[in-house]
Design a protein around this nucleic acid. Structure first.
Lengths: 192, 192
DNA sequence: CCGTTTGGTCAACACGCGTTGAGCAATGAG
DNA sequence: CTCATTGCTCAACGCGTGTTGACCAAACGG
């Protein structure tokens, strides 16, 4: 067991995890540029040189910090996908994983983070687009649905808009649902 | 006139404008941290020291670069405001003023830019919220409408999502309109 | 018990940054 | 014409950064 007498390998893995945790937290809070390796090291109770030794470079550390599983949504109907997106929004307005927040914070200024974000969002858009295959402009509709979620997340998590922070996540999801539905429904069905 | 024999004052104002232009462009492209005073100076064909002399500090230059008139929308009905937002979106997807883009690029990492963005968006949200006074949660609805626009703008301008870049702005506005309408309409009116 | 591996630290380098003060050359006023 | 003003440049400082190589001590294998 990993308890009282940690072996060398266990210790090593533990400190590596501590560094990664600190990195995710700081990257999420300050973005790539404003986060220094020294700060990460200090926060992990470790020497800056060790961070380099384990992750090679600041970029390497950042790349590892972004490694967060973002499952592309899987569901048959468009309505089901919307539900999943809105459900995800619940957690996005609650305790968003630091890796994701770090990506959002840095994607506007760091090319690597932007690439990562494009990849992740691209997956989501692709899945949703497939589900909208029947409508016109499925790709565009899917993209707008995703950017709507992204916008709300940024407004809440990063800009801290008081109107959003004061509202319970379920209420936000409730208000957003008709909008997403309107976005994903061809006009002919709007009057039902 | 300002033509063949520029006076001293005219020359001075001209170079100041050149610096400010370069600053806006570079801040918009790379954000606050990645934009160096040296780069701005070079791009304006000027010595870095001159930038300091005119604007005091990098932050001072940034503050001046953000000074872009963003008129809070004025209109009586909610529908009218939505039209205005979507019209603005047209330009947002086309040639967004560099100052605004600089704000968006930097707002996720720079506190001053975030403050600026909160102020600007707050004005928009307030105006829209007033127009929605009849509905429930007017503030929240207004905030979500604005973040929807922001999300689309980020997706287009900064992330460069191919689905958005390939579409004509009018089409985007056309698809977004029902969504915004759904966001600003109380549920009772949805079935009309 | 000895030698080697290895998790970890220390001090330092090189570089780019924002910022500064002295200086230059052209313009303006008298 | 003269001299003060001023738009502008030059060279440099101080600092914080990412990154490196020498070093130490504890854990391991024989």
């Amino acid at each position: 067991m990993t308890g009282s007498h940690p072996s060398r390998a266990e210790r090593r893995q533990a400190t590596e995890a501590r560094i990664l945790d600190a990195a995710r937290r700081l990257f999420a809070e300050h973005g790539f540029d404003r986060t220094t390796i020294r700060a990460v090291a200090t926060s992990a109770g470790v020497d800056p040189a060790l961070v380099m030794q384990y992750f090679g470079s600041k970029r390497g550390l950042f790349a590892r910090a972004l490694e967060v599983v973002v499952e592309p949504p899987s569901g048959d109907g468009a309505e089901e996908l919307i539900d999943q997106l809105l459900g995800g929004l619940g957690t996005k307005l609650g305790d968003l994983p630091d890796g994701t927040l770090a990506t959002m914070r840095s994607m506007l200024t760091d090319p690597a983070a932007a690439e990562h974000a494009r990849g992740t969002l691209g997956g989501q858009i692709g899945a949703l687009s497939d589900a909208l295959a029947g409508a016109d402009d499925p790709g565009l509709r899917a993209a707008l649905a995703i950017t709507t979620i992204v916008g709300a997340t940024i407004g809440y998590q990063i800009l801290g808009l008081t109107e959003l922070r004061g509202a319970p996540p379920e209420r936000v999801a409730e208000l957003l649902r008709p909008a997403l539905r309107a976005l994903t429904e061809p006009e002919s069905e709007r009057q039902r």
